[in-house]
């Protein structure tokens, strides 16, 4: 199974934004290896959550560990059968471990997104 996590540039901490995270970390639970992939949606003018979710489903991830998620991204992920679990703290390793030990909860807080949040209003 492949687990996807939005990760900051430092390749250490989980990024609070799913759509505009600089990197995704894809961890394969079978081979116990992972890789960092750039998030092309990071600087998208709009629809970043949709595009980032596309990257995640194209990588065949079945699980995403995130602190929160916007509704458009969640729609794409859910339609593709990807499960969202709520990360705890910032450590990638700790969260993978916690997920494998079934200690993480399903994400219930799907927010309406930050579209147009900086439009001068």
């Amino acid at each position: 199974m492949i687990i996807a996590i939005p990760v900051e540039d430092n390749e250490v901490e989980i990024c609070p934004s799913f759509g505009r995270t600089p990197l995704f970390y894809f961890y394969d639970t079978e081979t116990k290896t992972g890789e960092f992939v750039e998030n092309e949606a990071m600087n998208a003018p709009g629809g970043a959550g949709i595009k980032a979710a596309q990257t995640v489903i194209d990588a065949k991830a079945e699980v995403v560990l995130v602190p929160r998620c916007g509704e458009n991204a969640a729609k794409v992920l859910e339609a593709a059968g990807v499960k969202l679990y709520e990360s705890v703290g910032l450590s990638i390793e700790d969260n993978i471990q916690a997920f494998l030990e079934q200690k993480l909860n399903i994400v219930t807080d799907i927010h309406p997104g930050f579209h147009g949040a900086n439009r001068g209003k």
């Binding site: 998208a44 709009g46 629809g47 949709i50 729609k75 339609a79 579209h115």
Partner: peptide
């Protein structure tokens, strides 16, 4: 279509295009 869309309003889910009208 999804490659063309500069607004990322189309996702490809299980080999079908899905439109996000609000974007």
């Amino acid at each position: 279509c999804s490659d063309f869309c500069k607004f990322n309003a189309i996702a490809s889910i299980q080999d079908k295009a899905v439109v996000f009208p609000d974007v």
